[in-house]
Amino acid sequence: MTLETASQQSFGQKHVLDLDSFTSQDITHVLDNTLAMEQVLEREIRKVPALRGKTVVTLFYESSTRTRVSFEQAAKILSADVINVSSSGSSTKKGESLYNTALTIQAMQADIIVIRHPHSGAPHFLARQLRSKVINAGDGTHAHPTQSLLDLYTIRKNIGTIEGKKIVIIGDIMYSRVARSNLWGLTKMGARVVLCGPQTLIPNDFLNGHRTEEGHPFAAVEIQTDLDTALKDADVIMALRLQLERQKAGHLPSLREYSQTYGLNARRLAIAKDGALVMHPGPMNEGVEIETDIAHGAQSVIEEQVKSGVAVRMSLLYSMAAGQNLEI
């Protein structure tokens, strides 16, 4: 077989810390291969030998079902060995530092470490210190690149392309790592992004440093505090989880007021384009940021987001394991 190797090697990342370092080719590469991974999930025997002999360790310092389980399933379907470490059941409880825990894991010859941590930057720290490849599965309020990749995949699958589409992200932008990673992912793929929420959760100077910078991907990002205005001509609506602690911190007068001003309901959905996609990274507060009938309605692709999570993560693990020039 004649292999067109050079032209096909379009994934250039050793670690996956955030999408800011990804090129649009890297993103497209992961999304394209996700299709092949979805086909594996539809087979009778859901197992391929791609990552045989590789070890993937999930290291979770924060609770998670969706993300951890889908990483575990993705790695197992690709035949990798998976070790799950959670902070509650490990030596972390005895006061072991992140660095020492990570060294122990590296000593077990982990090829890829998937980490979630409440502190922004923890995955970057590991990537600098360790020889293993690192995937950020959510760090503090900073980034959640794999969630963004599966959002991009879901959009592309449902409306064909991301470029030129109007995507409205609603809610707790300031504290949302999903929104931050999606800002990078969506703008790199050429989408028009509108951020919408109360000023307490999107400060006036949010992104200002970037928005005034000529040619920066964020330069075209719009900020809008009125949801009805933001939703006009929207192709995709992403509602974010409202952390209930925000009210205590004084960012919101009351949940009821938030839900009246920024909750996604049938009347508001009608303002967007016909058939606009409704997305949510989960877990949802139904009745707060999104009404139940919309969350489970015909335009919702929320369940599909969860489903594509496994295939997207398979594609990503595969690309990282196959990285040619990235060998350690």
């Binding site: 292999l3 394991a321 196959a322």
Partner: peptide, 16 residues
């Protein structure tokens, strides 16, 4: 692509 024995050497192929 998912069955090759040399994936660490050849880079990530685009699968069809």
């Amino acid at each position: 692509g998912m069955y090759r024995d040399d994936i660490s050497e050849k880079g990530s192929p685009l699968m069809k």
